[in-house]
């Protein structure tokens, strides 16, 4: 399958990628490119390989065959100073349960080398009253929000999100959809695995079905 999202600036390129899990082929000959300002929705049944593909795009897994490039460089070979261009949110929140929301966000900010306003992001997420609460005392949805907040702290151009709507209520889902929309409008690329593509459907969005 070969599809190309519109626009001209080189962005994400997935070329002839195959992924195997043990003896089982999840997918092969996967080709698509996504230019700046595009959304890629990865859909498929459970076990189709959505998470595996997303991990490979983030550089956390090695494709069995093929190559994944971000702006012309293999994602696994990106120098440290360019790794911040890719942000990945998987099934786990990447949040420490024994730290408060503020401590988690401060840590994410320092690691990203960002100067973003934590209070403002917490307000956007409806977590302003929870800033000094340890995340173990938050609901799964609230913890998800804390994890997603790191997206706003970093300066990544490529967002790789694995079912970001999981555990979120309607307001949280709207907010994430709005964030993704704003990111793409600003020239970023978002690759999102989802079971509800309608929530993130945008004109020109590329749908990759596994």
């Amino acid at each position: 399958m070969t599809q190309t999202a519109p626009a001209s600036v080189p962005g994400l390129a997935v070329r002839g990628v195959a992924m195997w899990r043990g003896e089982q082929c999840l997918f092969e000959s996967l080709d698509f490119t996504a230019q700046a300002g595009s959304t890629v929705l990865v859909v498929g049944a459970n076990g189709a390989g959505k998470t595996t593909l997303l991990r490979a795009i983030a550089g956390l897994a090695v494709p069995t065959a093929g190559r994944i490039e971000w702006r012309g460089i293999d994602v696994r070979a990106l120098p440290p100073e360019r790794r911040g261009e890719i942000a990945y949110r998987g099934h786990t929140e990447g949040v420490k349960r024994d730290l408060t929301v503020r401590e988690n966000l401060l840590f994410a900010r320092r690691i990203a080398g960002s100067a973003a306003d934590i209070e403002r992001i917490a307000r956007e997420l409806g977590l302003e009253r929870k800033l000094d609460v340890r995340t173990r005392y938050l609901s799964a949805g609230q913890r998800r929000r804390v994890g997603l907040a790191a997206l706003r702290l970093a300066k990544a151009r490529l967002w790789v999100l694995d079912e970001p709507m999981t555990h979120l209520d309607a307001a949280g889902r709207r907010l994430v959809a709005e964030w993704i929309g704003r990111h793409v409008d600003d020239g970023g690329v978002a690759v999102v695995a989802t079971h509800q593509p309608d929530e993130l459907a945008r004109s020109g969005a590329l749908v990759v079905e596994l």
Binding site: A58, G59, L60, P80, E81, R82, R83, G84, I86, A87, Y88, G90, T92, G94, A108, I111, A112, G113, A150
Partner: peptide, 8 residues
């Protein structure tokens, strides 16, 4: 994963 993907 977040640490490995960070610029650090």
């Amino acid at each position: 994963e977040q640490l490995l993907l960070s610029p650090v």
